[in-house]
C-alpha cells in the first residue's frame, strides 16, 4: 500500500516527535469484514509508530479481544486510545481515522500524553481536579473542518487532567448512525454525558462550566 503520510509530513512529524518525553502506546481496535477506514487507520498508526522510538502500537480485534475492548469502552471500529508510559488509559480516544484536519488533534494528543503538558492556569486545574463523577465528552467532527481539532484537543486536555473525564473524537461520516442519533448537522458538535449539547468550538472554560453544572 502507498504511504499515507508524504515525505514532507513525515519529516515534520519526526521533528515534532523528537520533543516527546515518555513513551506512548496507541491501542487500536478494528474488525474483520466491512469496516469503513479500518485498514487506513491501521496504516496511519503503523506509519506514525515508525516515526518515533517512543510511540508504540498494539492492535486488537473488537470481536475477538472482548476483554481488551471493555477496558477502554470500545464499541465501534476503527477506534483507538492512547496510553501513558505506565500503560494507563487517561481517557484520550479517537473513533474514526484522524486524517484531514484531525491530524491536528491526533499529533498534539501524542505529544501531551508523553508528558509535554499544555500550560493551564492553576485555578483552572484545581477546578478540573474537583470533578468527581464520570464525564464523557464526545466531539463530533468532519475531516474537512478546520475548527474541529481545537474542540477535540480541549476534550483531551480535560481528560488528561482528571481520571473521571473521557474525551473522544467521533468522525461523523464514519459513524453515521451515531451522528444521526445526536442530530449532528454542524460540526464541531460537543455532547457531554450524552445529554448536554454544544455546537461550535467553545472556550475550554465553557466545557468546564457545563461539566461542573452536571
Amino acid at each position: 500500500m502507498q504511504k499515507m503520510l508524504n515525505e514532507e509530513i513525515q519529516k515534520q512529524l519526526r521533528q515534532v516527535f523528537s520533543e516527546m518525553k515518555e513513551d506512548v502506546t496507541m491501542v487500536l481496535f478494528t474488525e474483520e469484514g466491512e469496516c469503513y477506514s479500518c485498514a487506513e487507520t491501521m496504516g496511519l498508526l503503523e506509519e506514525v509508530e515508525e516515526l518515533s522510538d517512543k510511540i508504540h502500537l498494539k492492535k486488537f480485534d473488537l470481536n475477538k479481544d472482548v476483554e481488551e475492548a471493555k477496558k477502554y469502552n470500545i464499541e465501534m471500529t476503527p477506534s483507538f486510545v492512547l496510553l501513558n508510559s505506565k500503560g494507563e488509559y487517561e481517557g484520550v480516544k479517537f473513533n474514526g481515522i484522524p486524517a484531514g484536519h484531525e491530524i491536528n488533534s491526533f499529533i498534539p494528543a501524542l505529544i501531551e500524553m508523553s508528558g509535554v503538558k499544555q500550560e493551564v492556569p492553576a485555578d483552572f486545574e484545581a477546578r478540573v481536579a474537583k470533578i468527581d463523577k464520570p464525564v464523557n465528552i464526545k466531539v463530533f467532527v468532519t475531516l474537512s473542518c478546520p475548527h474541529c481539532p481545537g474542540a477535540v484537543q480541549k476534550a483531551h486536555v480535560l481528560a488528561m487532567l482528571n481520571k473521571n473525564i473521557e474525551g473522544e473524537m467521533i468522525e461523523a461520516q464514519t459513524f453515521h448512525d451515531l451522528s444521526n442519533r445526536f442530530n449532528v448537522s454542524g460540526v464541531p458538535k460537543i455532547v457531554i454525558n450524552d445529554k448536554i449539547e454544544l455546537v461550535g468550538n467553545q472556550p475550554i472554560e465553557e466545557f468546564l462550566a457545563q461539566i461542573e453544572a452536571l
Binding site: T142, S144, C145, Q173, S185, G186, V187
Partner: peptide, 18 residues
C-alpha cells in the same frame, strides 16, 4: 432548525449532507 438542518460553514458541514 439551527444545527438541525440550518448551517453556516459549508466546508465544515458539507460531508454531513452526503
Amino acid at each position: 432548525y439551527s444545527n438541525r438542518g440550518v448551517a453556516y460553514c459549508a466546508i465544515c458541514d458539507a460531508p454531513l449532507f452526503k
